[in-house]
Simulated scan of single mutants.
Amino acid sequence: MREKLRVAAYAVCVREGQVLLARWIDGRGRAEWTLPGGGMEHGEDPYDTVLREVEEETGYRAEITGLLGVDSRRAVETRRFGRKVDQHGVRLVYEGRIVSGELRDEIGGSTDMAAWHPLDEVPALHRVGLVDVGLRLWRERPVTGRVP
């Protein structure tokens, strides 16, 4: 079985009781809300990754105000032609503050929309688990930078 490691960086941006999310389109065309962010390019620092990804996916320029934690996810996934891949994702979750720019949707990327959502409405959204992990890190701020 093939093994694949992906390191990514994401931002939790909350203002006035709302969180900024991007709508991610998976390989099968399904849409789910996620934190703005994404995979590191070879040689790129994760800090630079999160700033680049927030701007690409939302149109905003962010300032990073802290590292909230690290989330690790491992799963065996079935890919094309029934091939199995042992996928390990390491996700650095930062707290961000929007400093400039205007909200816009990404064109030609892995997301198709960006929007602010009231925090109390997030549980009703069709979302990836990372949204819950990120918001929990933001709320609880565990010393270990990890939520069980």
Rank of each mutant, 00 (worst) to 15 (best):
R146W: 15
G17I: 00
I107H: 04
V50N: 00
L103R: 13
H126R: 15
E3A: 13
T34A: 12
T111V: 04
G17H: 01
V122W: 10
L35R: 02
A31C: 11
G82M: 03
E53H: 09
V147S: 09
K84R: 14
V70Y: 07
R61N: 11
T58L: 11
G101V: 13
A22T: 15
T65Y: 06
R83M: 10
G39R: 04
R2C: 06
A124I: 06
T65G: 09
A124Y: 08
Y10T: 03
D45F: 10
R2D: 05
R61S: 12
F81W: 14
V76I: 12
E53W: 04
V70E: 09
G89D: 10
L5A: 13
T111F: 03
V93N: 00
R127F: 02
T65M: 07
L103P: 12
P46S: 05
E95N: 12
L135E: 02
I64P: 01
T144L: 05
T78V: 15
I98R: 11
Y94C: 02
G101C: 07
L135V: 02
R61C: 06
E95C: 11
V143S: 11
T58N: 10
E3H: 13
Y60P: 01
R74P: 04
R2M: 12
L20M: 03
L119C: 10
E32N: 11
V85C: 02
G69R: 04
D132Q: 03
I64L: 10
V133P: 05
K4T: 08
Y60D: 01
L135C: 02
L103N: 12
L67M: 08
E55Y: 05
G17Y: 01
V14Q: 04
L119W: 06
G108D: 04
A11S: 14
T144K: 05
G59H: 05
D105E: 10
E102N: 11
G43H: 10
P123K: 04
M113N: 13
D105W: 00
G96H: 15
G89F: 00
G39W: 02
R30E: 15
I107T: 09
A22G: 15
R91K: 13
V131Q: 00
V85F: 04
V76P: 01
A114D: 09
R104F: 00
G17K: 00
H42G: 08
R146Y: 14
D45L: 12
I25P: 05
H88C: 06
D112N: 07
L67S: 02
T49H: 01
L21V: 12
T58D: 07
R15M: 08
E57H: 14
E56Y: 15
E77D: 00
T111Y: 04
R15V: 03
D86V: 11
L35H: 05
V143F: 11
D120C: 07
E106Q: 15
E53S: 05
